[in-house]
Design a protein around this nucleic acid. Structure first.
Lengths: 239, 239
DNA sequence: CAACTTATGGTAAATATGACTACAATACTA
DNA sequence: TAGTATTGTAGTCATATTTACCATAAGTTG
């Protein structure tokens, strides 16, 4: 695409090729047995055949970026209606070997129980990886992944988004372990439970765990409506 | 740009037009007499002639997004070497009336004293606006501005970026007023000064204000090198 | 010098944090 | 069935941090 540029000072007109291709790449986080995991796909064709990367694809002409991210997420993994937030645009001219392509990074938080996302659910292979087992990734996907991890660490302390990684009903210990894993810290059980409960953000479901080989813990759920009300009263989630 | 899509399940191939134009728009913040200001430009030509908007332009084929943002900032305002950070990509299909254009938003923090940015420094008009006097803006620029304000509020509490809006040498009261304005809160002078000084982040310049009609305050400066050292020791800026 | 403005230091109550102890409930196992 | 292991839940207390003040110092202006 050729575009004319007018120099404001001299009035000179120059022509210059401008950017013309945009994709979306999505970091999908899951939480399983105390470990944070990321869903990666193996490319089945093209120059990156056999290599692992983030699920992604092209944005269509008539859809918003958010819509494209949701569509691609569903097309590639069957995942829908999840927490999905844009990270930023990545646009190093050399990031894609076959030409200039800018990509918009997203990250999703999913309840792994809800989606039985297994290897082989699409034509290309797909697999959950723990953070310390991530293979080499194509293009700048490692950079996008690292950026998303950092973003997750920051956001999770400022907003109640961690719940998106847990089942609908969860125990306080599960919640604490989630934060321990994401923030990479050790927390004190009694102190953590006090801090969370004091926010009055969680709904006590008056239910207990079943089929556990120890004292069953109370189950709670997160209610966005309650959070909404609290924020309107000036409440600020902070961990 | 036409692109082929392969449906992973059915193997069907469909063709679809994909995105093909990207711009950059930049929210430039300044701080003057206790008020946060934004630099807007009046479009001199085209369909939006006479209307106000954020300074911006096209990304070139061979430059990174960050480089494009820096270049445009300089071309449009003469501003260089300032704090400049990407917000995110904005891509509603209807955001630009003449076709599908995605824009990458940036925000810059500048020391107004350093740059004598006045109306008329480019062919199109430009002017600083206080936040409560912003005129109607073209396209989705109001949305980008609102997003940047929110981002600024969040970032300014987590990282020492506020100094970028102040002169090289500043007083603690100036710093406090800056935070009051950005965060929209009232702060206590003695408490604020203690909190900041305890971080040992500021360099006491052993100088005082001059030509003020009251007791002169000590001048301080922010030293990025000190901040660097402190963060390596595990220090986390937080206000 | 008095009145005024801003800088800066001090202090005490309230709140939050962090470390630790104790005990309750359940299930497994010997 | 008694003991052991595991996790859940409650309580305590010292310490650190925050917040809301009061007081005084150092200048400027008339």
């Amino acid at each position: 695409m050729i575009k004319k540029f007018i120099d404001r000072e001299s009035g000179k007109i120059t022509e210059q090729k401008v950017m013309n291709a945009i994709t979306i790449d999505c970091v999908i986080f899951g939480f399983n047995e105390g470990k944070l995991e990321v869903l990666l796909v193996e490319h089945a064709e093209g120059i990156s055949k056999g290599q692992w990367g983030l699920p992604g694809g092209w944005i269509k002409e008539d859809e918003s970026i958010d819509a494209a991210a949701n569509r691609l997420l569903f097309e590639l993994t069957g995942i829908a209606d999840v927490y999905l937030e844009q990270l930023k645009a990545f646009g190093d001219p050399e990031r894609f070997p076959l030409g200039r392509v800018i990509t918009v990074g997203y990250y999703a938080l999913i309840k792994k129980d809800d989606y039985d996302v297994k290897a082989g659910f699409t034509a290309s292979d797909a697999k959950w990886y723990q953070l310390d087992e991530i293979p080499e990734l194509i293009y700048d996907h490692r950079e996008i992944l690292d950026y998303s991890l950092n973003q997750l660490k920051n956001r999770v302390r400022q907003a109640p988004i961690g719940f998106n990684l847990l089942p609908e009903k969860f125990t306080l210990l599960q919640l604490m372990q989630l934060y321990q894993e994401i923030l990479n810290v050790e927390l004190d059980k009694p102190n953590f439970r006090r801090k969370i409960l004091k926010m009055k953000l969680l709904v006590d479901l008056k239910e207990k765990q079943k089929d556990v080989s120890h004292r069953a813990a109370k189950l709670y759920k997160f209610d966005p409506a309650i959070y909404e009300k609290l924020t309107q009263k000036g409440f600020n989630f902070e961990l």
